[in-house]
Design a protein around this nucleic acid. Structure first.
Lengths: 185, 185
DNA sequence: GCCTTTACAGACCGACCTGTCTGTTTATGT
DNA sequence: ACATAAACAGACAGGTCGGTCTGTAAAGGC
């Protein structure tokens, strides 16, 4: 018996490969070879490569949502939560060699023909947006102001991720964090 | 004789296809079929598909740089230039069906192994960043303040492009424009 | 002991990929 | 009229792709 069952091994291996090299650059043969499983085992658990990709994105979404919920319910100040959120992004980008957002990257590959993946991307982005709006609402307690403030921080966050990936540098995240913290004052 | 020579036809056709469907989703055969040329003619002008991609990005960069230089030298106020720049992005996203930035999209595909393309992406991004910094310098005439202000607008611009693409909606650009205009006040 | 489920190995298929090659046609300059 | 270069058509090679198929091995419940 292996350390984990085949389905989990496939999902973990594919996740790493999709994230590092991009969905379209990774083949089924590479996934099953690195996961040390057989092609028949793969198709026993996932009907297609696209379904595996959706399972991966769903898994990432679940974990990130738990993390945001924890941060939202923590006893830090709203301002502190924003700071922590950007610092988490910073360490994520550093330790992932500036690979950026798995959702945006996957969406950039599939030019728009795959509806299932697009829906997951939009759900994930709206989740982050809602989180930032809620944090801001804890700060200003004015729904409308909190929404526009949260949206602006959301765009700073997204831009920081994108350009940190493009330029392979960390300063966009620091600039965005400073700008967000000034906005919330 | 065709309306344009083969090299230009290939570049224009490939540009449209790369932009709409993504670099890795478009093959040589499709390009030459849509460009109504022969494979031998293609390899007479471009040594490889990657070289064609670099030529396309270089062409896009040249045209966008001219556009930014025109805007920079125009007689609009710095604030007006920012506004025009975001409005240009808005109409670009609308008429391109939310395909986003060709550079970021291409960079998301090639996970980092292709240095030539990465250099072009970074050059393009730094060009936009420099443009925004200069516009801000026309406004605040304090080099350090102009730089951080320009960088913040740069991140808003990037985030607006990314999320407008992801969500297939136009509001991120309007939010980013409003935020940028408030920042510059 | 048997039986069902799960995982294994890997051949095989048709389609597609980039890139090479041979040879023909067309346009242009002199 | 003729030479030269560009564009043409398309077969071909060597490889990879996602996905299907047949058959075997091992584990767990009864």
């Amino acid at each position: 018996m292996r350390k984990a069952n085949a389905k989990e091994r496939i999902l973990n291996t594919a996740g790493k490969l999709f994230f590092r090299h991009g969905y379209s650059e990774v083949g089924i043969n590479e996934i099953i070879a690195k996961a040390e499983t057989a092609k028949a085992s793969f198709y026993q658990h996932y009907p297609s490569k696209k379904a595996l990709c959706e399972a991966w994105l769903s898994d990432v979404h679940y974990r990130s949502e738990v993390s945001r919920a924890d941060l939202l319910d923590s006893d830090a100040t709203p301002r502190g939560k924003i700071e922590i959120y950007f610092d988490q992004l910073k360490s994520f980008m550093e330790q992932s060699e500036f690979r950026g957002c798995p959702y945006s990257n996957t969406g950039a590959v599939s030019g728009g023909e795959c509806t299932g993946i697009i829906e997951q991307i939009q759900g994930h982005k709206e989740s982050i947006r809602g989180f930032l709006r809620e944090v801001c609402f804890q700060h200003v307690s004015d729904k409308k102001k909190a929404d526009t403030l949260g949206d602006r921080i959301f765009l700073l966050y997204s831009g920081a991720t994108t350009e940190s990936q493009n330029l392979k540098e960390i300063w966009p995240i620091e600039i965005a964090r400073d700008a967000a913290l000034e906005l919330i004052n």
